[in-house]
Design a binder for these strands. Structure first.
Lengths: 121, 121
DNA sequence: CTCCAACCTGGAGTGCGCTCCAGGTCAAGG
DNA sequence: CCTTGACCTGGAGCGCACTCCAGGTTGGAG
């Protein structure tokens, strides 16, 4: 029964304390356990969710969509198809994002080459 | 002497009219020509800048830095070294961004594989 | 038991990059 | 000339994802 204090959860997940509270407030992270006194105790499961949120956030998924995913997961087994499809559609968008980024990176490198070939240094 | 009306410039650059005006207002795009009556006329040169801004924006450069670059370019030849370095530093950040995106994309694909391997469909 | 760093809440504030609006002006086709 | 759609300005507003704050509570070390 591992439990992490807020500061520890923040350190492990890379999110700030405020962000963890925010994620709970908007219903991304649900039912975070509390001590008798009301202080949060994060479980390994919570940490797992945070790792996923980081992945989705870093790949540009809007919070509303992450919330939808989390919501579906909470509804149980019968939503697995929808969850899988949601992730697949997102993955496609990430692929598009990567292609665009690569393309613009190539432009950028060419622009830099232009500067490097400039006469007089 | 090609000149483009605002709507045409927007179409060609992919930026909205409002964004074009905004870019001029904040000093990204300087000295856009006008008709006698005050309406903007975009040149091929302006369009070139817009293509660059799109590249930089799509690769995540903040507007303040784009403005700095544009400022340097306007100051003349003696800023080429600084401009090149600015672009190089940015390119490095884009590389880092691409690595992160790839890493998180891999996580995402693995998560999707998890769903695909799920027993019972 | 005391202390104090870490935690709590609700709500306001921030930064970014646009986007929209009202109320007027311009200019090209008919 | 007249119409009308594209354009102008200054400034307010928006959506997102946090981030910060005040004022109070908790809980483990000593």
């Amino acid at each position: 029964m591992t439990g992490y204090a807020p500061a520890e959860a923040a350190r492990r997940s890379g999110f700030s304390l405020d962000t963890l509270r925010y994620y709970e407030k908007i219903g991304l992270l649900a039912d975070v356990e509390r001590t008798a006194g009301g202080q949060r105790v994060f479980t390994d499961d919570d940490l797992g969710w945070l790792v996923l949120f980081r992945c989705l956030r870093d790949t540009g998924m809007p919070i509303a969509q992450m919330r939808r995913y989390a919501q579906l997961a909470r509804e149980g087994e019968h939503t697995v198809d929808e969850r899988r499809e949601l992730l697949r559609r997102h993955a496609e968008q990430v692929e598009e994002q990567m292609r665009l980024l690569q393309r613009q990176y190539d432009h950028l490198r060419e622009k830099i080459r232009f500067y490097e070939r400039l006469p007089g240094r």
